[in-house]
Amino acid sequence: MASSRKVRVLVAKPGLDGHDRGAKVVARALRDAGFEVIYTGIRQTPEAIAEAALQEDVDVVGLSILSGAHMALVPKIMRLLKEKGLNDVLVLVGGIIPDEDVPKLKALGVKGVFGPGTLTTDIIAFIRRELNLDTEEAPKAA
């Protein structure tokens, strides 16, 4: 990825779940923190999300799922991302995720899982750490 451009984040809502409060709040917080944010809107298929990640050339994919369908949707999205060669994209999941599913998601390659009550500042700090961003400056991809 180019060193001079902003870090690009795709915030996506897979499945039928329409609860978009969290996705929108996180999208806006990331934008205010200097990231380039693309929000897909609701009811996206795994295929559409993987395709958007590719087309938008993103560094981070944040998936928001509150319906409990994460164990059906996330594996599919991870597989599609890999098929498109997006192996280095940082994938995060937010929503209602039972503790027992967290290790399963991480085994699929999800780097961070954020449950209810997460502060947006914690998500921002997590992304910066994972992408080795200089915390003093606006986020730039390394």
């Binding site: 499945g15 369908a69 059906a72």
Partner: peptide, 22 residues
């Protein structure tokens, strides 16, 4: 559940993973 709320039968492709969840 969500498939019902969106007017899909349980076995519709759009309903994948959502049966009985909400």
């Amino acid at each position: 559940d969500l498939p019902t709320l969106y007017g899909y039968d349980t076995d519709a492709p759009e309903a994948e993973g959502e049966f009985g969840k909400c």
